[in-house]
């Protein structure tokens, strides 16, 4: 798959703090990629370098055949920066049109784009209100909107959904999901559930380095692991299941009432495994509350982070 943007051995040192320590990863074109890491892992710095706002000490971020240049590649890569505010006296429509014109749109097109995006983020009625009079959530929506001015090919979103109300979160999630295949989106978030719902790729970074990356399905084992949440008090028929599916490894957690089945998807089609397990449970009259493929991303992340922290001492330069 073609790479849209790649961080290559990027190093960034802030006085005594090494924010990025040889960060390397690639994001496939047209994918939605989640960037996950603890506070201070280097996610925001990684984005700032990609958008040309911060200079790396070593390495480079490659997009459009080289390092992104805001003047040359204006509007092709956009960023929702974390902890940034709108200018206090700016008006949403005017501000968006200004940014649109900066990236080369004609005054008319920029104004049209501003209207389209304000409608998209449900703020058409506040188009001329000073930013200082808008709520935090409203301002955040405008900040997200500016990322989609014109036809950006790469969009970097730093904590895009934090601070939005539940209705807007759902709406924005749906909007972002619709962008899949049309542009490359990289989302940094602490909300792993959000990443799981939206992204097809994920990168874990810690202490300025990539600790794990790949397609979400691969990382969570979605192809070869199924988990069933069971109700009632009856035990699942483990012996019958093992006899029926000898190539599958079963694990039962009585306290969580969770049945886990692990298998090799290349040899055993998942549909066949699911069908057999469900039939056996229904025959044994064990209530099934839910079925999920693979591990939760949170469990994968925590497992990776725990292994990492126990393996290496803290790195500060």
């Amino acid at each position: 798959m073609k790479t849209a943007i790649a961080w290559r051995r990027v190093v960034k040192q802030y006085r005594r703090l090494r924010a990025l320590d040889g960060l390397s990863f690639e994001v496939p074109s047209g994918s939605i990629c989640g960037l996950v890491g603890s506070n201070g892992a280097g996610k925001t710095t990684a984005f700032a370098i990609a958008a040309g706002l911060t200079r790396p000490d070593e390495g480079a971020v490659e997009a459009f055949g080289g390092a992104f240049d805001p003047a040359r590649d204006s509007g092709r890569l956009t960023l929702l920066p974390q902890d940034s505010e709108l200018p206090r006296d700016s008006r949403p429509r005017e501000f968006l049109a200004f940014l649109g014109r900066l990236q080369g749109l004609s005054p008319r097109t920029a104004a049209r784009e501003a209207d389209r995006l304000l409608e998209l983020v449900h703020l058409s009625d506040r188009a001329r209100a000073p930013a200082r009079t808008l709520s935090h959530g409203m301002r955040k929506r405008i900040m997200i909107a500016q990322c989609f001015l014109g036809m950006p090919e790469i969009v970097l979103l730093d904590e895009p959904l934090s601070g939005l109300d539940p209705r807007e979160v759902a709406h924005m999630r749906e909007f972002l999901a619709r962008q899949r295949g049309r542009r490359t989106i990289v989302i940094s978030s602490h909300n792993l559930h959000e990443i799981e719902l939206l992204c097809d790729h994920v990168v874990f970074i810690e202490r300025g380095r990539t600790v794990r990356s790949g397609p979400i399905d691969e990382l969570t084992g979605a192809q070869d692991l199924v988990q069933l949440q069971l109700g009632g008090r009856e035990e699942p028929p483990l012996d019958a299941l093992r006899a029926l599916l000898p190539a599958v490894t079963f694990a039962w957690s009585a306290s969580e009432r969770r049945l886990t089945a692990r298998y090799d998807a290349r040899r055993l089609p998942p549909e066949q495994v699911h069908d057999a397990i469900l039939r056996s449970l229904l025959d044994a009259r064990v209530p099934i509350l839910g079925l999920s493929q693979g591990e939760r991303l949170e469990a994968v992340y925590l497992g990776t982070a725990d292994r990492r922290s126990s393996a290496s001492p803290p790195s500060s330069a």
Binding site: G52, P87, S90, L99
Partner: peptide
């Protein structure tokens, strides 16, 4: 300095020199 403090300069500076 106001734009540097609030971070709002980043919106324009990701689009121009």
């Amino acid at each position: 300095s106001e734009e540097l403090a609030s971070g709002s300069a980043r919106y324009a500076l990701q689009r121009t020199s």
